[in-house]
Each structure stands twice: as structure tokens, then as C-alpha cells.
């Protein structure tokens, strides 16, 4: 999903966004403050165990640093003011990201595992799904 700019839309759609990153909790708190991501909930998964439980593995060099990744990142740098990525101890540059929507009964309603690290799903379908789920609760 795209993290920037749409935070309140997820809340209005009835959802709660939970970010699950690697590394230390203090780093998660800093990131969410610095990127102004509230009301997202920022959590840490220091040992990768939650990532693994959702089928998210470490990627290949192509998935993490391949041409598609590099040019996607360069394009985003030109078109917006995204900051240069940085890593801290405990974080894993090779970890593949993913996005899931889980309903109030604990059932997966949407699952996206990135094909490469830039393959983030658009927010539109996720917001539409949240609106549909909102109508059922």
C-alpha cells in the first residue's frame, strides 16, 4: 500500500492500518512520527516471525535491487520528495513486504505479497474493500 497522504481515508473507510516493521520499537515510533503517519499503528516484528507467518520471505537480489526496483525508486525520487531509505540494526533489506486486509472475524479478505520491493498495491482496491466490509458490520 501507499503510506503517504491517505491515512485518514482508511479510518473513514472503517479500517485500522497496522504497520509491522522489523527492528526496534523506538525506530517504529520515530518513523511514524517523522512521516506523520498517525493514526496508523506502528509495531515491530524484530525476529521476522510475524512476517514468516504470513508467508513473507527474504527476497532475491533481483527482487530487492534489480533494474525494476532501481528505476522505480529513481522515478519516485524525481516525482516526489521521498527520503533516501536507511536501515538500522535488526532491519533486513532483503525482507519482502506484503499487505493483508483482515476482517473482524480474523479472516483474510485481501492478500498481496510483493513480487519485488516496489510492487506495493494501490490504495484504491483496499479502500473499496474496507467500505464493503464496513457495510457488513
Amino acid at each position: 500500500m501507499q503510506l503517504r497522504g491517505d491515512g485518514s481515508k482508511f479510518t473513514r473507510a472503517g479500517g485500522r492500518v497496522v504497520l509491522i516493521g522489523l527492528g526496534a520499537p523506538a525506530r517504529a515510533e520515530w518513523f511514524c512520527e517523522e512521516r506523520k503517519l498517525k493514526p496508523f499503528v506502528c509495531t515491530s516484528d524484530p525476529g521476522n516471525a510475524a512476517h514468516r507467518a504470513y508467508g513473507l520471505k527474504r527476497g532475491s537480489l533481483r527482487q530487492v535491487m534489480g533494474p525494476r526496483v532501481y528505476f522505480g525508486w529513481a522515478k519516485a525520487r524525481v516525482l516526489s520528495d521521498i527520503p533516501t531509505p536507511s536501515w538500522k540494526p535488526g532491519e533486513d533489506i532483503m525482507q519482502m513486504p506484503g499487505t493483508f486486509v483482515i476482517d473482524t472475524k480474523g479472516i483474510v479478505r485481501y492478500a498481496h505479497r510483493n513480487r519485488d520491493v516496489t510492487d506495493n498495491p494501490p490504495n484504491g482496491p483496499i479502500l473499496e474493500l474496507l467500505h464493503r466490509l464496513k457495510g457488513k458490520t
Partner: peptide, 16 residues
């Protein structure tokens, strides 16, 4: 987190 409202769980590789 999902008990009261649907959750979008975004798994990241790093914060930064």
C-alpha cells in the same frame, strides 16, 4: 487490532 474493525496489515522490511 482486528477485533473491533477490519485491519490493513502492512508488513514492511524496514522503518526508514
Amino acid at each position: 487490532f482486528w477485533r473491533e474493525r477490519p485491519v490493513v496489515a502492512a508488513f514492511l522490511r524496514h522503518y526508514g
